[in-house]
Design a binder for these strands. Structure first.
Length: 906
DNA sequence: CTCGCGTACGCGAAT
């Protein structure tokens, strides 16, 4: 039984006399059905009354297994016994966050701000954890140590350690684990799972247990603990896993009861939770035994009672409630004792700089008001992004298998065809696909499951092969591979938060002056000629080289942005600068390297994952495993380092510094995303086009959709230059975009560019084309009708247009079809299997000789997709020689900009 | 991932 609704009233707790003595209670009124139902009152007893401290009207509340009682003809609900209350169940709290909050609520907050530091205990801990997993899978200790130390080569090198030293440290821990595993208490029949990913719908919680043995959580800690009892926060972490394991157990028991046909009593999830947790303190084995050394056994068991389980739920609730209004914890929320805290300095510095209330007090001078306002605005916006990621988790259980099949974040209905245990104890799982499309790519981390990623058999794994016939995934444990889901990751949000922290709280004030309009950007005059046949490109290079703070290069479609960027990087290198080359996407980073290569420059180190980096750029990729000195040396001495902005926000790049950061696609980057790269350097150059698509964010928060590039170019037009000669489009095609988006400044670079025609392509004859398609730009109104996000009649018309070009001799490879919606893209793909069909957003960055655009809409232009005119700019400027617009002229005419577009095209 | 202090602890209930 569960009751769920929106809180409409929370009464103050009061003490009442009961037949058993005095008790505290608190009454909460909720409206079920997301606030639409009749108000119901729930009485929270005892410790649950603390919920009143943070529960506010408007929050969602779930009450599980409440006691029901009739009073004066009304059903009343109360929370006692095995019932639990969950605040904002859709907010997924991570178990490690519960752990941090228990230590100190403010530590939970600080972890979010500055999580990306590289520290030896952290690297060592990760290696020990990996070795632990290997040992559970039956691998030899020495082999596991060697391999895992090698894997961590770069991090070890960046910390200035040697592989032998780390291997020696890790060996002590590994021996302790091995000794414990070999104790007689463990038998062949022991059931182990390592790295078990748990996602809880019921409690709004997620996490990864290091190991689960006979259904009970085992947590590995690479520290020492010579007390008899495990540390409290360690117990809390293990208990949180126990809570979620109990939920799974209760689910499978009730499924079993249904199968057996007895509707009989099943256990509540709290009852079904394992009653013992184990903490393994591996450093204990290395502590010298003396009179005072205490209890040196590495393994410490503790019992998990319902009180501890519910304490975890209440702690989780306090976090979810605080996140509901994006508050900042002060440390007073729990009885933290600051004088013992290792984070006290950081805590005081952050509260000092942001002028926050904190139990530890403040130190240092607050950053100016405008910076604080900026910090708070962006912090909030990034947290909104985090909640959007959480919504993706919720879809794992909210969507029916049919809905999931239609979602591009999953591949369902796979047919398992085999599994093999690999040499390292991992499993290779194979399945046959259904040919459905999804955004899952080879190399991605995914949730592999037997069909249900939340309550079924599920493992995190890596996609090794993804072809129509065969899907191959590697995981730690075997399972029947029937479904793959994109694993919603918070890493991007974490890194944006880190970038914001570093940029505002750790940079000296002078560096921030230009970002906050306190000083105009300065330039040194440069008279050297870098590019002699294009005035604006040359000027862009001069600005970049002469910039003392930053320079902005505005590059409309086809203006040779990447060429200029490469030339500029070479000019900076020639001056002796160490350059960071970055962009939002891997594709743009690789394109920039390619342009450098074309200009004969190859002293480049590319940082990124193997799957992210294009095949022909792998030769520049930094090997992150192997000899630590070599790995770190290669990165540290490279003249040009290329990486995506997300990688710049990671630990490896945080150790690096540069003279200049050159950032491409800057118009598609959020401000914190840009800062992730620019805070690593003294100066920066942003290259982009704010008249093309803005940053993609999941939440609809406007704070993040305006790029730093756009803000700076508006504030300091003199710090920028626009590349005004385009090498892509015929005169007729570029005219509308130039007028509408670039003040008429954009013009063809040469007469040949301006005059290009479709019959310039070999074997194409204009005479073969129907009359209405002979002009460089044409408009076709097929008189179709929109159903959902598709328009089948329009798709037919597009196919007909494409067919006409094909018949006139245009190769399929030279034709691109663009539509605003994925659904229409799918509709078009069915008709046009050999032509590139994609959404506007995904076509950005590429071009074709012939582009056909399908607008889908009939009647009126509805939906946000049409509101952003920059999307038209992108769609129309992909074409070189011919552009055909297919749509409903009346619908398009309802909007002035689209209307002018139709007039121009006809 | 480390280091430090404190933290939970049965059942049932009033108007």
């Amino acid at each position: 039984m569960q009751l769920r609704g929106v809180v409409v009233d929370v009464e103050a707790p009061k003490t009442v006399n009961t037949q058993y003595g005095e008790s505290e209670l608190c009454e909460v009124t909720v409206r079920p059905d997301r606030g639409a139902g009749e108000p119901t009152t729930v009485t929270l007893w005892g410790k649950w009354t603390e919920t009143a401290d943070y529960l506010d009207p408007g929050m969602e509340l779930a009450v599980y297994d409440p006691d029901e009682r009739e009073y004066q003809g009304e059903t009343q609900y109360s929370v006692g016994g095995d019932s639990t209350v969950v605040v904002e169940p859709d907010f997924l709290v991570d178990v490690t966050d519960v752990r941090a909050w228990v230590q100190c609520p403010r530590m939970y907050y600080l972890r979010k701000l500055d999580g990306a530091e590289l520290a030896y205990p952290l690297v060592k801990g990760t290696v020990v954890h990996e070795v632990f997993g290997d040992l559970l899978r039956g691998r030899d200790v020495e082999t596991a140590i060697d391999e895992q130390v090698e894997q961590a080569g770069l991090d070890i090198g960046l910390l200035g350690r040697t592989a032998d030293e780390v291997a020696g440290d890790v060996r002590d821990h590994a021996k302790a684990i091995e000794g414990w595993l070999n104790q007689g208490t463990l038998t062949e029949s022991d059931q182990w799972r390592s790295e078990m990913t748990l996602i809880s719908e019921r409690y709004g919680m997620k996490g990864r247990a290091d190991a689960v043995r006979r259904g009970m959580p085992v947590e590995l800690k690479t520290g020492k603990n010579t007390k008899r009892e495990p540390r409290f926060q360690d117990k809390i972490q293990a208990t949180a896993y126990a809570l979620m394991l109990g939920e799974r157990e209760a689910n499978s028991l009730s499924a079993g009861a249904v199968m057996a046909g007895d509707g009989g009593a099943t256990q509540t999830p709290i009852d079904a939770a394992p009653d013992t947790g184990t903490l393994l303190y591996t450093k204990n084995a290395a502590v010298e035994r003396t009179e005072e050394s205490g209890d040196l056994s590495p393994a410490k068991e503790f019992s998990i009672g319902s009180g501890l389980l519910k304490y975890v739920v209440r702690t989780r609730n306090a976090i979810a409630a605080m996140e509901h209004d994006t508050g900042v914890p002060t440390g007073y929320e729990a009885n933290a004792k600051c004088e013992y805290c290792f984070e006290q300095d950081t805590c005081m510095a952050v509260s000092g700089r942001l002028d926050q209330e904190s139990k530890a007090g403040q130190v240092g001078v607050a950053i100016p008001d405008e910076e604080r306002e900026y910090f708070e605005r962006f912090y909030r916006a990034i947290e909104a992004e985090r909640r959007a990621v959480h919504r993706e988790y919720a879809k794992l259980w909210e969507q029916t298998p049919e809905e999931r099949a239609d979602d591009d974040r999953a591949l369902v209905n796979l047919e398992p065809i085999g599994r093999t245990e690999l040499d390292d104890g991992q499993w290779e799982l194979r399945a046959e696909g259904t040919g459905a499309v999804s955004k899952i790519r080879e190399g991605d981390y995914v949730m592999a499951s037997d069909g249900d990623p939340v309550t079924g058999d599920a493992e995190l794994g890596r996609v090794r092969r993804l072809s129509e016939g065969e899907i191959v995934v590697t995981t730690d444990e075997p399972l029947d591979l029937r479904r793959l889901d994109v694993y919603p990751s918070e890493i991007t949000t974490d890194r944006l938060q880190n970038a914001l922290h570093d940029a505002l709280l750790t940079q000296p004030p002078e560096r921030k002056d230009v970002l906050f309009g306190r000083r105009e950007p300065a330039f040194t005059e440069v008279s050297e000629t870098f590019i002699d046949n294009n005035e604006s490109q040359n000027e862009a290079c001069r600005l970049a080289v002469g910039a003392e703070d930053f320079a902005l290069v505005h590059g409309p479609p086809g203006t040779g942005k990447t060429y200029t960027l490469a030339r500029m990087v070479r000019a900076l290198v020639a001056r002796g600068d160490r350059v960071l080359l970055s962009a939002f996407t891997n594709r743009a980073v690789d394109n920039a390297i390619e342009a450098l290569e074309d200009q004969g420059y190859t002293d480049i180190v590319r940082v990124g994952t193997e799957s992210g980096v294009r095949e022909d750029m792998q030769k520049y990729r930094l090997e992150q495993s192997g000899d630590p000195d070599a790995c770190a040396g290669t990165l540290g001495t490279a003249q040009v380092v290329a990486a995506t902005t997300a990688t710049c926000g990671g630990t490896a790049m945080q150790s690096q510094s540069f003279d200049v950061a050159v950032v491409d696609e800057a118009g598609q980057l959020t401000e914190p995303g840009t800062l992730a790269a620019t805070t690593l350097s003294d100066r920066f150059v942003l290259v982009g086009d704010h008249q093309q698509l803005p940053p993609v964010v999941q939440s609809d928060d406007e704070t993040l959709t305006r790029s730093l590039f756009e803000r700076l170019i508006d504030a300091h037009p003199d710090a920028g230059v626009m590349l005004d000669r385009q090498y892509r489009m015929a005169q007729r095609i570029q005219a509308f975009a130039s007028r509408e988006f670039y003040d008429g400044q954009l013009r063809p670079a040469t007469g040949a560019v301006a005059a290009q025609r479709i019959d310039d392509l070999g074997g194409v004859s204009m005479g073969e084309l129907p009359e209405h398609l002979r002009d460089g730009v044409s408009f076709v109104d097929p008189d179709g009708s929109q159903t959902g996000n598709t328009n089948p009649a329009e798709a037919d018309a597009v196919a007909e247009v494409v067919g006409a070009y094909r018949e006139a001799g245009v190769p399929a490879d030279d034709i691109g079809v663009i539509a605003p919606f994925r659904a229409q893209v799918a509709e078009l793909n069915r008709r046009l299997p050999d032509v590139a069909v994609d959404t506007v957003d995904r076509f950005q960055g590429s071009s074709k000789e012939v582009i056909v655009v399908s607008f889908v809409a009939t009647g009126a232009l509805e939906g946000p997709i049409f509101e952003d005119y920059r999307r038209i700019n992108v769609a129309l400027t992909r074409a070189k020689k011919a552009l055909v617009l297919v749509g409903d002229a009346d619908a398009l005419g309802t909007d002035p900009v689209y209307g002018r577009m139709v007039e121009w095209a006809r």
